[in-house]
Structure formats: C-alpha cells, structure tokens
Amino acid sequence: MKIAIYGREFSDATLPYVQQVFDNLEKHDADLFIYEKFAHFIKGKVKHQKKESTFKHYKELKGVVDVMLSLGGDGTLLDTVSLIRDSNIPIIGINLGRLGFLASINKDDIPAAIESLVHKEYTIDSRHLLKVESDTPLFGDENFALNDITIHRRDNSAMMIIHAYLNGEFLNSYWADGLIVATPTGSTAYSLSCGGPIVFPLSENFVITPISPHNLNVRPVVISDTYKLTFELEGRSSKFLLSCDSRTEVIDNHLKFSVSKADFQINLIRLKNESYLSTLRNKMLWGIDRRNY
C-alpha cells in the first residue's frame, strides 16, 4: 500500500507514538510519501529503514497514493484537505493532540488501526465542503473549507454588522462579533461552542451561527446546502477577517462575497469499530451523566 504522511512539528513526548506509526507501517511493507517539511523535521528523530519519497504539492499524490495519513489533531487533519483537494484520496487521522474528533484514532490504538488500514478493513465517509467566492480573489486556489467559513472582527472591540442574503433574498443583519457558516462536519467545532446544533453528516445542510449576537432573539439556523449565501459587511473598522478553516485573510469592509457548497467532497476513513455516534459518545461524552456511574 502507498501511504502519504502529513504532520506538524511535535514535542518529545509525542515522539514514541510517531515512531510507533513508522514501525508498524514498515512492518506491513508500506511505501511512504512524506510531506517535505515534516520529513525534514523528523530526520534524525524517527528511525525507519525503508527509503521514503517526499512531496510538496497535491499534484504529486494524485493517482499515486492510496491513503493520506494525518499525524496530529483535528487542525492537522484540516491541513491535509489543502493537500488532497479533489483527488479523492481518503484521509485517516491519528490523534496526537487532545479531542481528536476528526482525527479519531487514539494513540493507544495505533498498531490495530494500521493493520486494519493496510488490509483495507474500513469504510469511506464522504463529507461536503464550503467554498467562498468574490470578484476579488480570496485564498487563491484554496478557497474551500471542511469545517467552516467564519467572519471575524479584526482590530477593535466594536461589533460588526453582517448583512446576509439567501439566494439573493435578505435573510438578516447580524449585529455580532462575527458569523460562522459551518458544514455538518464543522457543526461539532466552532459553531457548537457558539451555541449551534449538532448536524449529522450527509444531512445536506449548512449551519449559520452568530458569534455573540447583540440581539438575543437571533439564533443559529439550518439551511439546505443547495442555497447560496451572500454577505456584505459594515462597522467602524475598515478591515475584517475571513477564515476558511485555519486559513485567514484580511478583507475590506466594502467586499461582497458568497458562500456555497464546494464542487467536490473529502473522503474520511472510518475503521470497522467506528461510527459517527460512537465518536460523539467517546469524544464528546455524549449522553454521559456521572451520577449514573
């Protein structure tokens, strides 16, 4: 099996788990393609006998590798989306961080997870993405997000006003610190912490969640992912922030932009003992009440 590996810099405490990943991949004679910056970082730290290849760009992976392996937390896995794009290469994440909702493989399960992976004992969980478009190019060719697209204040404490339109019809003017447009995948991330609902994958919806709205009767809403949202910004500041997952750009207050469903999906790998409900229960303590134990 040909496996691409992406990771960020990590602490010495994480090194034994990364070494375990490479040991198990070597045991199964996997051909490795390591992200170039990560390969430089682990050189001299992680021991592996089989010579690996390196890559810098997603075009080097398309049609070449079978799986993308993300080593880190959910943020690291979101980084891999920019490397995978529309190549349909499935992604699996080994959680070396804290929560690990997307990177769902625990550190203690590395040997069993890799064995299931190389024997292709898994299912594919396809997820929709968002894209942002404007007359002024934003984010280059990485104008998509798996979790959410978010509008933030930038350089003062004053609220901003976000005028939102749904398929051209006025939806609302949000007086708030910002606004989140989340996919079902992102409904358990920033949107959830701001009071948004949990939306199951494949629900074909988006969530619009205001961040600290001034009007308390303004609540998160769920809309069909066939809709196109358009935004205009107003406020004391002339600059605001726009984020696609972990990527952020500064935008002018006169910029008009739209958010809609992207033209491709991302494929997440789910091992046989995994499901969305089991992840909710295990990672978010879904329905657990300490009084019952």
Score class of each variant (00 low, 15 high):
residue 186 G to Q: 04
residue 41 F to H: 07
residue 161 I to V: 10
residue 180 I to Y: 00
residue 112 A to Q: 12
residue 74 D to H: 13
residue 142 E to N: 09
residue 144 F to K: 08
residue 125 D to R: 08
residue 183 T to D: 03
residue 144 F to G: 02
residue 77 L to F: 01
residue 10 F to M: 00
residue 283 K to W: 11
residue 263 D to L: 12
residue 269 I to K: 05
residue 196 G to W: 06
residue 282 N to D: 14
residue 279 T to C: 14
residue 160 M to Y: 07
residue 43 K to G: 11
residue 131 K to D: 14
residue 262 A to K: 06
residue 129 L to R: 07
residue 31 D to N: 10
residue 195 G to P: 09
residue 249 E to T: 06
residue 140 G to I: 05
residue 266 I to Q: 04
residue 154 R to M: 08
residue 275 S to T: 12
residue 247 R to S: 15
residue 219 R to G: 07
residue 46 V to Q: 12
residue 160 M to S: 07
residue 124 I to D: 10
residue 65 V to H: 03
residue 189 A to M: 10
residue 50 K to E: 14
residue 169 E to D: 13
residue 109 D to V: 02
residue 262 A to C: 15
residue 130 L to S: 01
residue 239 K to A: 10
residue 63 G to I: 07
residue 241 L to F: 06
residue 262 A to S: 15
residue 42 I to F: 06
residue 258 S to K: 04
residue 123 T to A: 10
residue 40 H to E: 15
residue 29 D to R: 15
residue 205 N to P: 03
residue 281 R to H: 13
residue 21 V to P: 00
residue 262 A to T: 06
residue 113 A to Q: 03
residue 74 D to E: 06
residue 264 F to H: 05
residue 249 E to V: 14
residue 207 V to H: 01
residue 145 A to E: 03
residue 241 L to Q: 15
residue 41 F to D: 01
residue 222 V to Y: 09
residue 21 V to F: 02
residue 142 E to S: 05
residue 36 E to Q: 11
residue 101 F to S: 01
residue 1 M to V: 05
residue 72 G to I: 02
residue 11 S to N: 13
residue 24 N to S: 02
residue 86 D to F: 13
residue 279 T to W: 10
residue 76 T to H: 03
residue 1 M to Q: 07
residue 53 S to F: 13
residue 26 E to S: 12
residue 141 D to Y: 05
residue 107 K to P: 04
residue 75 G to Q: 06
residue 144 F to Y: 15
residue 246 S to L: 14
residue 3 I to L: 12
residue 136 T to V: 15
residue 19 Q to W: 09
residue 118 V to Y: 06
residue 155 D to G: 05
residue 183 T to M: 02
residue 117 L to K: 06
residue 242 L to W: 00
residue 251 I to M: 02
residue 162 I to A: 00
residue 217 N to W: 05
residue 22 F to K: 01
residue 211 I to H: 01
residue 38 F to V: 02
residue 97 G to P: 03
residue 290 R to A: 06
residue 22 F to T: 00
residue 130 L to G: 04
residue 151 I to D: 03
residue 138 L to W: 02
residue 51 K to D: 08
residue 260 S to D: 09
residue 233 L to A: 05
residue 267 N to W: 10
residue 154 R to Y: 14
residue 214 H to I: 08
residue 5 I to G: 00
residue 25 L to C: 01
